[in-house]
Design a protein around this nucleic acid. Structure first.
Length: 301
DNA sequence: ACGGACTACACAGGATATGT
DNA sequence: ACATATCCTGTGTAGTCCGT
């Protein structure tokens, strides 16, 4: 068993450094059953994202909308929008995921390109996501370029960074030129999104402590009932399901990287009782924590 | 968006079994 | 002997519904 997750840290934003300072972009081939939970949980990042399903069928959630994409279909997600992905039926459904810092498209800070063609589109209403699944030429073009970027990135031949920058700029150009019939994001949706982010950030910082619903409701200044309602409306799971998933992911990190006992791990990630931790872990990962740790110590091929 | 009523279930904690 | 897993039970609260 080889498990990998998108590293979600304790900062206000749950995110990885995609690539490096010198070349701030990264490409992943994301096979969903390699995530410990079997899916990529809710997160957001400043990078724009291009995805192309290569195997099976993947359900993407962006804002309050869900899209089921089969192999060959793609999706663009703009900077800063909450999203998640999970397999529809085949657990090993896979997609190419390109995360690129918008700096790569801006050429230099304050440039005309940035002022006229990048910044205005990052916060543009109705440009949160674009499904790239049709027969239109520009759809085909972007899908082909996603594959091209993936190949360049994995092969690392001479000049690949330059080629990727050109491709990304061309993809962005195509996208902003063809954004008719986009879904609109309402002011209410925007407020809900900000609230969800606030609650998730709070969970990332306090998951090791006991968290109550009242506490979460207070930080976004709404009642407990409304807190449950709106979170489920946006994230499609309850607040405490999200917290539980987050704690399990954190415990997996500790099992992999420390020699803490199972009880200590349970305590470190906010589970007040070892028994409940083991039960929950087994429900989510299909192994007990000890079995999981032992399997990780067996060298992978 | 709130508050109250209600229900289901998450959770803690103890006892005991099992594994190393 | 100690750590971990499993089972069980009582309690608190998360989540939902409904009226406002």
């Amino acid at each position: 068993m080889q498990i990998k997750d998108i590293p979600i840290d304790q900062n206000h934003r749950e995110i990885t450094l995609h690539g490096s300072y010198e070349f701030p972009m990264a490409v992943y081939l994301d096979q969903l059953d390699r995530n410990s939970l079997g899916f990529v949980n809710w997160h957001w990042h400043d990078e724009i994202q291009f995805s192309l399903v290569t195997k099976g069928e993947v359900e993407f959630w962006v804002n309050q909308r869900s899209y089921r994409l089969k192999a060959g279909q793609g999706l663009f997600i703009n900077s800063g929008y909450l999203h998640m992905s999970r397999p529809v039926s085949e657990p090993d459904s896979t997609y190419i995921c390109i995360d690129a810092d918008i700096k790569l498209l801006s050429f230099f800070p304050g440039s005309a390109v940035e002022q006229n063609y990048i910044k205005p589109y990052l916060k543009l209403s109705g440009f949160s996501e674009v499904i790239i699944d049709g027969e239109a030429e520009w759809h085909k073009d972007i899908r082909a370029k996603i594959v091209e970027v993936y190949e360049l990135y994995t092969q690392e031949a001479f000049g690949y960074e330059l080629d990727i920058c050109m491709l990304l700029a061309a993809m962005w150009r195509t996208l902003i030129s063809n954004q008719k019939n986009r879904p609109e994001i309402t002011t209410n949706e925007y407020v809900d999104q900000q609230r969800v982010k606030t609650i998730m950030s709070y969970i990332h910082e306090h998951y090791m402590e006991k968290i109550t619903l009242q506490e979460l409701a207070d930080i976004v200044h709404i009642s407990k009932g409304e807190c449950c309602r709106f979170f489920k409306r946006i994230a499609k799971c309850t607040v405490f399901d999200y917290l539980k998933n987050y704690r399990i992911n954190k415990s997996i990190e500790l099992l992999q990287t420390t020699e803490l006992t199972i009880s200590q791990v349970a305590d470190s990630v906010g589970f007040g009782s070892t028994s409940y931790y083991i039960e929950t872990f087994k429900k989510h990962v299909s192994f007990t924590p000890r079995e999981y740790r032992m399997s990780m110590s067996i060298p992978q091929r």
